[in-house]
Design a binder for these strands. Structure first.
Lengths: 203, 203
DNA sequence: ACGCTAATATGACAATTGTCACATTAGGTT
DNA sequence: AACCTAATGTGACAATTGTCATATTAGCGT
């Protein structure tokens, strides 16, 4: 197993190197910023690249982009202090293979192995952030005193239909649709159909 | 490392058992459905529970729920054939530790190790499904010929404000706000503010 | 059959919204 | 200064929307 490490914190970088080398993991090189990480990658083609997110000159994100542009099959594992939730999404879409906390050293080695084997690894807290971002369980409108028909109306409003179109879709008169919506707004404490659509798309 | 395995496919189950046992992994028991998985878990308290999703009597999802209710720190790893994307979200929110494909046997072992160490592991395809579910890259309005002010208006519409409120928030007259919105709708080929809010929340 | 209730519809009304044509203003350019 | 352009505002207008009071209808239970 051959890797490279990039972290602007010397202590972290060296500790990691020492620990990992004691576990038959070959550290081909270490760098202190994103640019160095990219150079190291091009030079050594490691199995996995271990990158810090926050680094001077070039961030880990940017470096990951460069590396993936150079080698789209690169396996990149982000090391983060904690609660850098903002970058998770970007990292995910970028095709990065992992996002773990640099706190618990002992779990980094298995993570490396799993990533080398083609899996993606995420730290405990990271996953909980992630699952909170994912669409999640949709609101159960029935529990808010909303009928099945009303729910259908909501769905159509949330698709951007106007009252006439909703009426045609549900075989109701436009007026009835208005009444339904009026009732729903009341129950949900909303003001207008726009807020209703937003509610539907966020809850 | 001690685990249990539940899969209704005998071949998969036994192959897994054989392979893993050849890797110093102790298989405490195997079962063919969710109910058996729960019983096995309560009996053996394994480091990790390896569960198939689709199983007769009780599905892997349900079993996971039972197990987590019994031991909230249980480490559960789902084995899926492929493209069971529908369950990913549910599994995630449930607090499951991994979701990997049962195809590539050789990567299951490292996944187990990582999970035991407290990480979460997801198979390659699984992650790509996941990242497609996540909010994703927000549309760059600037590339659609939309100015900064217009973008601000859009953001406020997407929060559910009416024109008067947007005007107050941006120190513009209500009429100007209307003009902005009118222009934006034209550029985005939308009909009204509701569709605009939806667009903002989905693109 | 009788009464009750839910679902659907209607009409009236005010408020909001979207469109458009046309000011007004403020900065830059020449 | 004269000009141009972008940003902002205004007024008028029709369409849509939300609210409400009030039918109409159909089904259900007694």
């Amino acid at each position: 197993m051959k890797i490279i490490i990039a972290d602007d914190d010397q202590i972290v970088k060296l500790s990691l190197k020492t620990i990992l080398e004691s576990l038959e993991i070959e550290v081909l090189g270490t760098g202190g910023n994103g640019r160095e990480a990219v150079e190291l990658y091009k030079e050594h083609h490691p199995d996995v690249a271990l990158l810090d997110i926050r680094m001077p000159v070039m961030t880990g994100l940017e470096a990951a982009g460069e590396i993936l542009k150079y080698d789209s099959s690169a396996k990149i594992l982000f090391l983060t202090t904690f609660s850098d939730d903002e970058y998770i999404i970007e990292a995910l879409n970028m095709g990065v293979k992992g996002y773990i906390l640099k706190q618990d050293f002992e779990s980094i080695s298995p993570a490396l192995t799993a990533v080398k084997a083609g899996q993606s690894v995420f730290g405990r807290d990271v996953v909980s952030k992630l699952s909170s971002l994912v669409p999640g369980e949709k609101t159960d409108y029935r529990k808010l005193g909303i009928s099945e028909k009303e729910e259908e109306v909501i769905a159509l409003v949330a698709k951007g239909l106007n009252n006439k179109e909703i009426g045609q879709a549900m075989f109701l008169s436009e007026g009835t649709v208005r009444n339904y919506i009026s009732g729903v707004l009341e129950k949900l404490q909303l003001r207008d159909r726009t807020q209703l659509a937003i509610f539907h798309h966020t809850h």
